[in-house]
């Protein structure tokens, strides 16, 4: 089943144990939650901003609430989940640092996945084209992209270090396949981190 999942979601799904309490922040149409549904003892919740996505997710039988990661996480009590998940959403939030703090307040662990803006193809495009990169990975143009906080893997590591969070796992993806940790900031298109506060 995980074959059909977006690669970063497949990585996350592969590292979630049974009987876990999950909050998927920015869950889209609920693809990841749906993939976890058959694991025993799961308590699965989602938060999603787009009403059409929410309707699809609820119609799939998932517990998904329409809301905004920037404003609505404050309503969840401390430590109410084992894992909070933020996949491909961090770069769209107004205050990524605050959203991550909230994730690690609500849950003991957080999976965060994001596109790496420092991938060599983007660097080349910016360095030699002189234009903001439009790639298969980041297909929108600068004015219509929902990504308002582009970041690199090294930027993310710096933030994690500054806030004193610990990294319990990290996975890097290139063309949808796992790639090496060495020089990930240059060679990985996507990163998935598992954090603990």
């Amino acid at each position: 089943m995980n074959d059909q999942l977006r690669p970063d979601l497949a990585v996350i799904a592969g590292h979630i144990p049974d009987a876990a309490r999950i909050l998927d922040v920015g869950c889209g149409d609920g693809a990841l939650l749906a993939a976890l549904k058959d694991k025993p003892g799961m308590d699965l919740r989602g938060l999603e901003i787009d009403p059409a996505n929410v309707a699809t997710a609820v119609a799939r039988g998932l517990s998904v609430v329409q809301g905004d990661a920037d404003t609505d996480l404050g309503y969840y009590p401390d430590d109410s989940f084992d894992y909070a998940i933020l996949s491909q959403t961090l770069q769209t939030t107004r205050r990524p640092d605050l959203v991550m703090s909230e994730l690690l307040r609500i849950a003991s662990h957080a999976f965060v996945s994001f596109p790496n803006f420092a991938h060599w193809r983007g660097r080349l495009s910016l360095a030699f084209g002189g234009r903001m990169p439009v790639t298969k990975l980041l297909p929108e143009r600068w004015y219509d992209t929902p990504n308002i906080h582009h970041l690199t893997i090294d930027d993310f590591r710096t933030l994690v270090q500054e806030r004193g969070w610990s990294v319990e796992g990290q996975w890097f993806l290139n063309k949808g396949r796992a790639t090496t940790h060495t020089n990930a900031n240059l060679f990985a298109e996507h990163a998935v981190f598992l954090l603990r506060s």
């Binding site: 919740r45 009403p51 309707a55 609820v58 517990s63 609430v65 809301g67 309503y75 009590p77």
Partner: peptide
Amino acid sequence: VHALNAAGAPASFVEL
């Protein structure tokens, strides 16, 4: 919905 979340009740919510 916020109250249901705070209470830990499984909730879905959508504005149509």
